[in-house]
Structures are given as C-alpha cells and as structure tokens.
C-alpha cells in the first residue's frame, strides 16, 4: 500500500515536471529566440498602435512600443529556410500586414496575423525582392520581383500588373506621398548605385544622392514626406529635401539595418544583432529598448 502511494507520488511529481517543461517550452516559443535575433524589417500599424518586427522566418507584435513582444503564427511555408525581405502595413493600418520574401511570394493578414492568405496572383514568380505600400491608398502596393520588374496592385494584392523595368537592380522599394508628383506620390528605389526616385507614374527614374556604401533601408516621415532617413553600412543619413541632399546623422551604438518612422515623428531602428532603438522627434539621441 505504502509502495503504491510512493509510486503514485513519484508519477505525479514526474507529470508535474513534464507539464512545467512543456509550459516553459511554450513560453519560449512565443518570445523571440536567438534564431529570431536578426531583424530584417520593422512596420507600424497606425490603427492599432502596433509595432511589428520580422526576422527571416518569424514575426512579432508589440503593443507597448517594443517593450514586450508576442510571436505571430505564420503559415508553414515560413519554415526555418524562409527568407522574409519585406514587412509592411498599408496606409491607415486597418489591422492588415503583408509579409514577402524570396521563395515565399506575398502573404496578407487582415486580422493582425490571426490568419494569412497568399496575395501574389499575377506575379510571375515567388522571388520577391521588395514590397512597398502606397503612402495614402490602402489597397495599392508595389513589388519588385527577381526578374527586376516592378508590379503594382490596386486591390490589396489580389491581382498585379507589370508597370516598369525600374532603374536597374532594385534592392528595396518605398512609396512616399511627397508633393510634386504628376500622379499620387513618389517611388524611391535603392539600387547598387544608390537611391533613385521616380514619380509613381513611372515617368523617369533619377538619381537621388550619391552613396558609396550599401543602403539597407529607407524610410520617410509620414507628416513631412520630404524628410527621409536611410540606414547605410556607414551609419544613418537623412535628407530634408526629398533626396536632393543628404547629411550624416547620429547613429545608435549598434549598426542599425532597418528603420520605421511612425506618425508622431518617432523612429524605431533595429540593429543587426537584434537590438531595438528609438529616436524621439527632433532629437539626435537614440535610446536602447528592452534588454
């Protein structure tokens, strides 16, 4: 009888530890792990006040400006070998997120990541180089595919139309609502030879700045679209005249590779070691967030 009781007790204790281990595993799975360290893109949903960060194969959401993060479940195609290149939210946010990458194509979630649908019908292949949201039209998107061409969707990614060959091999594409366009805004393309810009009618690509180093991201102030920031391998630079002239800016202690400009003028930057930084409006000081 005593032996049976002891056996039961041991079994219970063992079961308790098993449950505890499983729970720890679950917690680990919902927080960024070391494999998620390198952040490839940041995005901000204005409608929800949500900051998002993506690694090559994972996505996290923060509702407290980067203090705590919640992992968002992704489709199985985002396995360990996935290669996310772009994370965007459309104009107005609307709880919508797009993720795109090499071999992945484009995925859209309209419920902050609860469910996902493919949004790349009409694009010749799934080798997405970059995905950009129109600055003011929520359903208009632009993408650069590995064939080097630029495609546009005006129905939230349900269909795509070939628009232009672009200015050369594009690494990154962004749309801004800077004034002076014949159409609705301007496209900025980061290429091997620096930044190129064109009105969004794809009328004429022109050089915007002369950079020697590699540019890893380009963002603009949504309230003053002429104010542009770029992350380069030589640190951060900014332009206050739509890319005509650039000057070196103060950079955080770690090398920032991706940025997001949120409506109140705050910029978040992520370093290649996964560290997140924040710069308040009109300051040169970057504050480190989290651990």
């Amino acid at each position: 009888m005593l032996q049976t009781f002891k056996l039961l007790s041991i079994t219970r204790t063992f079961a308790f530890f098993l449950v505890l281990l499983a729970a720890i595993g679950q917690v680990k799975a919902s927080e960024p792990s070391s494999s998620d360290a390198k952040i490839v893109a940041l995005a901000y949903d204005i409608s929800k006040g949500a900051l998002y960060k993506a690694s090559r194969n994972s996505l996290f959401q923060s509702l407290d400006n980067g203090q705590k993060w919640r992992r968002i479940r992704l489709p199985s195609v985002f396995d360990n070998s996935a290669n996310v290149v772009s994370l965007i939210t459309p104009a107005g946010g609307k709880n919508t997120i797009y993720l795109a990458g090499r071999d992945l194509g484009i995925f859209r979630s309209e419920n902050s990541g609860e469910s996902w649908t493919a949004a790349d019908k009409g694009i010749p292949n799934k080798q997405i180089v970059s995905l950009a949201a129109h600055a003011t039209l929520a359903e208009t998107l632009y993408t650069v595919v590995a064939d080097k061409n630029i495609y546009r969707s005006e129905d939230a990614g349900n269909s795509w139309q070939l628009m232009d060959e672009g200015p050369g091999e594009i690494r990154l594409l962004k749309h801004t609502n800077m004034k002076g366009s014949m159409k609705t805004g301007w496209l900025f393309a980061v290429t091997a030879s620096g930044v190129q810009r064109a009105m969004d009618c794809f009328c004429l690509w022109r050089q915007a700045g002369d950079f020697k180093g590699k540019i890893t991201d380009l963002v603009y102030n949504p309230q003053i679209p002429e104010h542009i920031y770029i992350a380069t391998e030589n640190g951060l630079m900014s332009s206050q005249d739509g890319g005509e002239t650039w000057k070196q800016r103060m950079s955080p202690e770690s090398h920032v590779t991706t940025l997001v400009y949120i409506p109140n003028g705050v910029i978040f930057g992520a370093a290649n070691d996964g560290t997140l930084f924040r710069r308040l409006d009109d300051t040169e000081t970057w504050e480190r967030l989290g651990d």
Binding site: M182, K183, C201, F202, C203, L204
Partner: peptide, 10 residues
C-alpha cells in the same frame, strides 16, 4: 516617352 502612362484628364 512616358506620356502614355497618364490619363486624358491628367
């Protein structure tokens, strides 16, 4: 050129 990219109105 790029004139063909613009609508009649534009």
């Amino acid at each position: 050129g790029h004139t063909w990219r613009h609508s009649n109105t534009m």
